[in-house]
C-alpha cells in the first residue's frame, strides 16, 4: 500500500449549536482520487475548510505527509464529551497553520463559488499563484532584478495554461471567461502552487454532461501528469463514480459510508440519505 498523504482524525466542526462535521476520520493515499459526497448541507465544504486552515476545527486533527497541520480540542466541560477514552493520545496542544502555510506545504484548492482574481488576466491569475514558490527577496523582485526567475515563472504559467487548454484566452480578463473555463482556470491556478494534494470543491458544478465527461478525463490526466493525489467534493454521480478510487459519504456531518464506487452504489444507508427513507 502506498503512503498516506492526508489523514483526518476525529474531525469535528461546531458552529455554536450546529455540528457541521462530526467525528470524521478519513485517509488519502498517494495517487488516489478520493471523493467526498453527501446531500446539500452535509458538511462537505466545511470539512475542506478545516483541512485548508480556513476554519479551526472544534476537535480532531489533520495530518498532511506526517506533519500536523491542524489539531484542536475544546476546553472545559466540552473536553470530556469530545475526548472520550483517547483523551491523552493527541489532545494536548493545538496546532493551527494559516491557509497560506498549508498551501506552501503542498495542499491547493479550488472554490465552490469561483474565486478568481477578478482584476487580472487569466495569465496573471496563474502567475500570482506562483508567488509563494519565489526564491527572490522583496528588493530584487520589486526592482525587477529577478529576470530569470520571472521568465521561468512565465514559462511555467504558459505551460500550465497549455495543459488546461486556456492558452488562447490567456490575455483575457479572468472573469470574462465562460463558467466552465473559469473552473478550469481555478484548477490551473491551484496547480501553479505546485501541490501534492489537490482539493476540488464541486469542480463540475454548472457544467453540462459533455463538459462533465471531459472534466473526468481531465482530472485523471492532471493526476498522472503532476503526480497528485486528489480529494474531490462533487454532486455529479457520473463523475464521482467514473474517477474515484474510494468514496466517503457524509450526511448531517456524519460519515455514513465509505468504499469503492461499486460498494457505495449498493449501500442502503447511502440510498436512504439521498432518496429519503421509507414512510414507516
Amino acid at each position: 500500500m502506498s503512503e498516506t498523504v492526508l489523514q483526518i482524525e476525529h474531525l469535528t466542526m461546531q458552529f455554536g449549536g450546529v455540528v457541521a462535521v462530526y467525528d470524521l476520520s478519513m485517509e488519502i493515499r498517494q495517487g488516489e482520487i478520493i471523493a467526498l459526497i453527501g446531500p446539500n448541507g452535509a458538511g462537505k465544504t466545511t470539512a475542506f475548510n478545516c483541512v485548508t486552515g480556513v476554519y479551526e476545527p472544534t476537535n480532531g486533527q489533520v495530518i498532511f505527509q506526517g506533519e500536523t497541520i491542524a489539531r484542536s480540542h475544546p476546553y472545559g466541560k466540552m473536553r470530556k464529551i469530545y475526548a472520550g477514552s483517547e483523551a491523552d493520545a493527541y489532545l494536548n496542544g493545538s496546532v493551527r497553520l494559516s491557509p497560506d502555510r498549508i498551501t506552501r506545504l503542498g495542499i491547493a484548492r479550488t472554490f465552490q463559488n469561483i474565486r478568481l482574481f477578478s482584476g487580472m488576466t487569466v495569465f496573471e491569475n496563474v502567475l500570482t499563484a506562483m508567488h509563494l514558490r519565489r526564491r527572490s527577496n522583496f528588493f530584487t523582485a520589486a526592482l525587477h532584478l529577478n529576470r530569470a526567475e520571472e521568465k521561468a515563472m512565465q514559462q511555467r504559467a504558459a505551460e500550465l495554461l497549455e495543459v488546461v487548454g486556456l492558452t488562447d484566452v490567456s490575455g483575457e480578463l479572468a472573469t470574462s471567461l465562460p463558467y466552465g473555463k473559469q473552473r478550469l482556470l481555478e484548477i490551473a491556478r491551484a496547480l501553479a502552487t505546485e501541490p501534492k494534494l489537490l482539493l476540488l470543491d464541486e469542480p463540475a458544478a454548472g457544467m453540462n454532461p459533455q463538459e462533465t465527461e471531459e472534466l473526468s478525463a481531465f482530472i485523471c490526466r492532471i493526476k498522472e501528469h503532476f503526480n497528485l493525489s486528489i480529494f474531490v467534493i462533487e454532486h455529479h454521480m457520473n463523475l464521482v463514480m467514473a474517477i474515484s478510487d474510494r468514496i466517503y459519504v457524509i450526511d448531517f456531518g456524519k460519515l455514513i459510508a465509505e468504499g469503492t464506487p461499486a460498494e457505495i452504489q449498493n449501500n442502503p444507508a447511502v440510498i436512504e440519505a439521498y432518496l429519503g427513507g421509507g414512510e414507516e
Binding site: M120, A129, H131, R189
Partner: peptide
Amino acid sequence: RAIRDDEIAAEAMG
C-alpha cells in the same frame, strides 16, 4: 492585487 481582488483566494494561493 490578488489580496485586493479576493483575500480568501489569495490566502489559499499561499
